[in-house]
């Protein structure tokens, strides 16, 4: 394969990965890493390095829109970023120590969980007492819900547990080079009881900063190869932008189900290859 066909084919596949990720509500990273390792035979460390950069690009692009619409809870995001950035640095360091095959196995497991999590139904249990921290930190907020046509006010619960879960989500993000939105959204939605729309906007906002923390470690360590990262970052952003344009217009349930099955198959293959 010539370097030119490598760049062009990787660009094409990254556009697809970004498109798929955006339709599923997952980042491009969870699709890009298996493609690089299974299809191109690239060392998983370099795959993770290229992926983490594309995660920053897609998250920042989406966050720009959400902040403008005031869907993001900036205070919750800033506070939880204490957890996600510390976790991300921890994860990026662990990635330097752990053997490649173990990274592959962990990746496969997280990937399987994340794709199943996308099928999850919205559900809220019994109301919980407000957190002791939410008051002094002024974390409670409100947003304008377009489908309801009114402003929705909400209270935040279990802040400390949320922060701990964010540390774990950050560590997974730093270890595997993915945004780990599939872990961040349930932590905010189910544990801290933020509305689902606010949860996903706020998660997206935090993903960029979380990824920047581990990308710093990867870059300084020399694990981000410009030759691999360039087509991946460009392609994933183009694909994700296209995906967000299509998202509102089509009924994507069948497409989502097909993607979830595909991702599950790939995750099994990642684990299998790691075990061999």
């Amino acid at each position: 394969m010539s370097p030119l066909s490598f760049t062009l084919s990787l660009l094409g596949i990254s556009v697809l990965a970004g498109f798929m990720g955006s339709l599923l509500g997952l980042g491009g990273g969870i699709v890009v890493v298996p493609v690089l390792t299974l299809l191109y035979g690239i060392d998983i460390r370099y795959a993770i390095g290229a992926s983490i950069v594309s995660v920053i690009a897609t998250s920042s692009g989406a966050a720009a829109a959400y902040v403008k619409e005031r869907m993001t809870n900036l205070r919750v995001a800033m506070f939880l970023e204490l957890g996600t950035t510390t976790g991300a640095i921890t994860g990026a360091f662990l990635a330097g120590i752990i053997q490649g095959r173990w990274l592959q196995i962990i990746f496969g497991l997280v990937m399987g969980f994340s794709s199943l999590a996308m099928l999850r139904r919205e559900r809220h249990g019994v109301p919980l007492p407000p957190s002791l921290l939410a008051g002094p930190l002024r974390l409670d907020g409100s947003y304008y819900d377009e489908s309801l046509g009114r402003v929705v006010e909400y209270r935040v619960t279990r802040v400390r547990l949320g922060l701990l879960l964010m540390y774990c989500a950050g560590a997974i993000s730093g270890l595997l080079g993915i945004g780990s939105g599939a872990l961040k959204v349930p932590a905010m939605d189910l544990v801290m009881r933020l509305p689902i729309k606010v949860s996903s906007a706020t998660s997206n906002f935090m993903i960029g900063v979380t990824a920047a923390a581990s990308a710093g470690v990867y870059f300084a360590r020399g694990d981000i190869s410009p030759f691999i990262a360039a087509p991946v970052a460009t392609g994933v952003v183009v694909g994700a932008t296209a995906g967000s344009l299509v998202l509102g217009r089509t009924d994507s349930r069948v497409l989502r189900a097909a993607f979830v099955i595909l991702l599950l198959l790939v995750s099994v293959q990642m684990v299998w290859k790691g075990l061999q």
Partner: peptide, 19 residues
């Protein structure tokens, strides 16, 4: 809180270069 996050981000570059 925000200054701490900023410090962590800048620290990551230094840590990666040495570790």
């Amino acid at each position: 809180v925000t200054t701490t996050v900023l410090a962590l981000l800048l620290l990551s570059f230094v840590l990666g270069a040495t570790g």
